[in-house]
Write a protein that binds this DNA or RNA. Structure first.
Length: 576
RNA sequence: GGCAGCGUAGCUCAGUGGUAGAGCAGGGGAAUCAUAAUCCCUUGGUCGGGGGUUCAAAUCCCUCCGCUGCUACCA
């Protein structure tokens, strides 16, 4: 393994296995992680991109019950669906794991044992709602009753959505089970393990302060808010059937029958999934350590992608767990947190099917349309807004007109006038030199922004590169010069073809399929299309005269007003 | 209620102390290779309201209004 290479470990917040994810889930974690991973591979960095489904927790247990199938079967089914949709969206994970894996169970037990051994876990007795009819403990939010503050008869046990007050199920008047409606709710004592997060406040504060300038504001402000409000020790076990059982050697078996809290084992799955990846590829029992542990992972830069809802778990709880092990685990270096994308003025909603989900998105348009739009408008500094008009405008203008039409006009003209081969006549002159100089700047800026995971800015540069090409071809005007000065026209088309070749390289991290189609117009593309490292003057002069080209079909079809009307109706959700 | 973020052109957003910006949309022109696609020029904003600090404020402080999120058992 070449250890002089830059090494980048990338994780996306792992999506709940529970159903198909919407574009809001995609845009904050999986998609930017993939664009960055592809960029890193294109640059030749040693890259490992990890994601997984999060398969534990009460909602999953209950969803399986609702479908009437065993939880493991439910997870198998939806993991496969999500893996398929991810692949169809071009998400190029090195491994898409499962938090319920054997590897993750071992890793979770290891973390728990270390924390227990080091005195960072407590056994405490808590009051939990129990439904005899359901035969189970109920999470707070699955107990429904009348709010003692405002009288709302459908208040949830964790919080009343009408008066927004935080509740305890004990407070509810006439509590009932959200699962069965049963009214025989009783409060029982239940022992649980607690992570003594308070042991790590100072270390966490210092660590977060050290990232004040390289993490987004949204990330440090959320993390500091938690610290400022005072950390509470956190329960890390639950009264559920489905999950990793607490081993008997922790607390002398006092936790028999309990499982670990989903948020305890979910972040560990980043490591567990790396082990799954190593096992799958027969890399040996210790290969995962090269990314995660001690000196073996010393040269790794670890980058995490997530929506803002996930930030507390990745800045406070998981780091506290890592600190508590007393072991040299890799901690996140760059934490890219995202805000939310709203749909036509309100939130995407999984429960009311409002908004666009990954399967529906692919039903109507290829993945690259979505990838480009979402990254060009990613909610980096604040929540962003999806509207169909805006989406239509961006796709039609940027992709169909500025990029697609450039490829089309140059290749078609080349076929009509130069026999479909790279013309050989003429020499590059001042216009071509000026273009190369301008592109040196734009490509460098595009590269810097991708390196910094500044996706909106990066894609604005990419677009500026396409615009520069259109400006050039307008001035070069080969269609005007063709009759009087064939060599001059040849120079313009040769440059145009080289520009298309450049686009194939530059688009690949964002739009892998379209990038390959663009590159294939000129010549075959390697599996990973490498990042241009040469100066533009050289890169744009590399196509061999006489080489045949192959004009592609329409790369990006325009979106018609009628389609927009149809899609708006289709995706408006069940609430309308 | 508490905390956090946001409020800049018709729309989506940059800009965090030094003469208000981009893309789209709108207006005018050029070109006719191309998916009627491109290129050039251009209209447009008392930077949510008010107060303060400063030689200078979209930017810092205070206050008010509005929107959004979080509030620890939804991930």
């Amino acid at each position: 393994m070449n250890r002089s290479m830059k090494r980048i470990l990338i994780t996306s917040a792992i999506p709940s296995v529970n159903g198909v994810k919407h574009l809001g889930n995609l845009v904050g974690s999986m998609l930017p992680a993939d664009v960055y991973a592809r960029f890193c591979r294109a640059r030749g960095y040693e890259t490992l991109a990890i994601c997984a489904t999060d398969e534990h927790g009460a909602p999953i247990e209950l969803a399986a019950a609702e479908e009437g199938i065993p939880v493991s079967e439910y997870c198998d089914k939806w993991h496969a669906v999500q893996a398929d949709l991810g692949a169809r969206f071009g998400l190029s994970w090195d491994h898409f794991g499962r938090s319920s894996s054997d590897q993750n169970r071992e890793m979770t037990w290891h973390f728990a044992r270390q924390l227990w051994k080091n005195g960072h876990l407590d056994v405490r007795t808590t009051k939990q709602a129990y439904s005899a009819t359901d035969g189970r403990f109920l999470p707070d939010r699955y107990v429904i009753g009348t709010c003692p503050h405002c009288g709302n008869i459908n208040a949830r046990g964790d919080q009343c959505e009408v008066c927004t007050r935080v509740l305890d199920p004990i407070d509810l008047i006439e509590p009932r089970s959200a699962v069965s409606g049963a009214k025989d709710i009783e409060i029982r004592d239940s022992r649980h393990l607690f992570l003594k997060q308070t042991n790590f406040v100072d270390q966490l504060r210092a660590w977060i302060a050290s990232h004040k300038n390289d993490w987004p504001v949204i990330v440090t402000s959320i993390a500091n808010k938690w610290l400022d409000e005072g950390l509470q020790d956190r329960g890390i076990t639950r009264d559920l059937e489905w999950g990793f059982p607490v081993p008997d050697d922790i607390a002398d078996g006092q936790l028999a029958g309990k499982v670990f809290y989903v948020w305890f084992d979910a972040p560990i799955e980043y490591i567990g999934a790396t082990k799954e990846w190593a096992d799958k590829n027969n890399l040996g029992d210790d290969a995962w350590r090269d990314w995660w542990h001690g000196d073996r992972a010393k040269d790794v830069t670890y980058v995490e992608f997530m929506g803002k809802d996930n930030v507390p778990f990745h800045t406070i709880i998981f780091p506290a767990m890592i600190l508590g092990t007393g072991e040299p685990w890799k901690k996140v270096d760059r934490l890219k947190g995202f805000n939310y994308i709203n749909y036509d003025g309100a939130k995407f909603s999984t429960s009311s099917k409002r908004g666009i989900f990954m399967d529906g998105a692919l039903d109507i348009l290829p993945a690259d349309y979505w990838r480009y739009y979402l990254m060009a408008n990613s909610p980096e500094s604040s929540d962003s807004m999806f509207t169909w008009e805006h989406f239509q405008g961006v796709i039609n203008k940027d992709l169909a007109d500025v990029l697609g039409n450039f490829v089309n006009r140059v290749t078609k003209f080349c076929v009509a006038r130069f026999d479909g081969a790279v013309p050989s006549e003429g020499e590059y002159g001042d216009d071509e030199k000026a273009l190369a100089a301008r592109l040196d700047t734009l490509v460098a800026q595009y590269t810097e922004h991708l390196e910094a995971c500044e996706f909106r800015k990066a894609l604005a540069e990419l677009r500026a590169i396409w615009v520069a090409a259109n400006e050039y071809i307008t001035v070069a005007a080969p269609w005007t010069h063709f009759k009087a000065d064939r060599a001059k026209a040849a120079v313009g088309i040769r440059m145009g073809l080289n520009l298309i070749h450049l686009f194939g390289h530059l688009c690949w991290p964002v739009m892998p399929t379209a990038a390959r189609a663009i590159h294939h117009a000129i010549q075959n593309a390697p599996e990973i299309i490498p990042w241009p490292s040469k100066p533009m003057a050289e890169f744009l002069g590399q196509l061999e005269p006489g080489q045949k080209i192959a004009p592609p079909d329409v790369l990006f079809a325009k979106i018609a007003d009628e389609q927009v009307a149809e899609w708006r109706a289709r995706f408006s959700g069940t609430g309308l």
